[in-house]
Amino acid sequence: MGRFFLHAFLLLATLFFLLPVYLVILTALKEPAKITLDTVWHWPEPVYWESFHIAWEAFRPKFQNSVVLALSATALSALVGALNGYVLAKWPFRGSNLLFALMLFGMFIPYQSILIPLFQFVKAIGLYGTLWGLILVHVVYGIPIVTLIFKNYYSEIPDELVEAARIDGAGFFGIFRHVILPLSAPAFVVVAIWQFTQIWNEFLFAVTLTRPESQPITVALAQLAGGEAVKWNLPMAGAILAALPTLLVYIFLGRYFLRGLLAGSVKG
C-alpha cells in the first residue's frame, strides 16, 4: 500500500516536472499555422523542424555572445576565486573574517539597489553596451560566491601540507602552485559549473547593460516571447536553444552541479 502511494506520488511529480517540457517540444515542432489553443497537446502532424532553423538563425549571434560571455567570465571568476579562497583559508590576517563576511553580503544584495549607479559607472568607463562591460560586472558580482566555495574547499586541505611546503622554503605563490592547485580540480569544476550556469541564465544586467549586438540569449528570448503576434513555435524553439548548454552541463556534470548548489547553503 505504502509502496503504491509512493510510486503514484513520484509519477504525479514526474508529470508535473516533465509535462511543460513535453509541451515545449510539441509546440516547437508545429507549423505556426497549426498552433491553436484547443489542440496544443496534439502531436504535430507533420513534424516541422523549420522553427529550429529560423530560431537558430535569429539567435546565433546572441548565442555566440552568451558563449563568449559565460566562458570568459567563468574563467576569470574561477581564477579570482581560487586566489581569494587560498588567501582567506591559508593566510588569514586580523579582520579577514570580517572582511569575508562583508564580501559575502554582496552575494545577497538585490541588484536593483545598485543598478542605476552601476549603469552610470559602466557608461563612465566606456564599457557600456559591450560584452566586456558585462563580463566585468559578472566577475565582480561573482566574487563572493566563488570566494566562498574555494575558501570552504581549501579549509579542508590540512594546514600541515602548507606548513611543510613553507619549511621547504616555498613562498606564497609557490605553495599555491605546487601544493594547493594540484588539489583544486574539484573546486574548479564546481565553480565553473555554477558560474557558467548563473551567467548564462542571467537577465537583469544583460537587459540593462547591452546593446542589440552584445545581447546574450536570455534577453533575445524575452524580447521574442514578449513580442508582437507571438507565434509560439519560435519562442519555444528559442527556449530550447537557450536552455540547451546549461541542460547539457547539468546532465553530464550533474554531480558537481549539485555540489555547487549546496555550496552556498549547507556549510558548517
Binding site: 559602466v122 557608461k123 557600456y128
Partner: peptide, 15 residues
C-alpha cells in the same frame, strides 16, 4: 515600449 526602454538606456549611456 520595450524599444523605448532600450533606447533610453542607450541614450543615457551616451551611446
Amino acid at each position: 515600449v520595450n524599444a523605448k526602454a532600450v533606447l533610453k538606456t542607450r541614450m543615457l549611456g551616451g551611446d
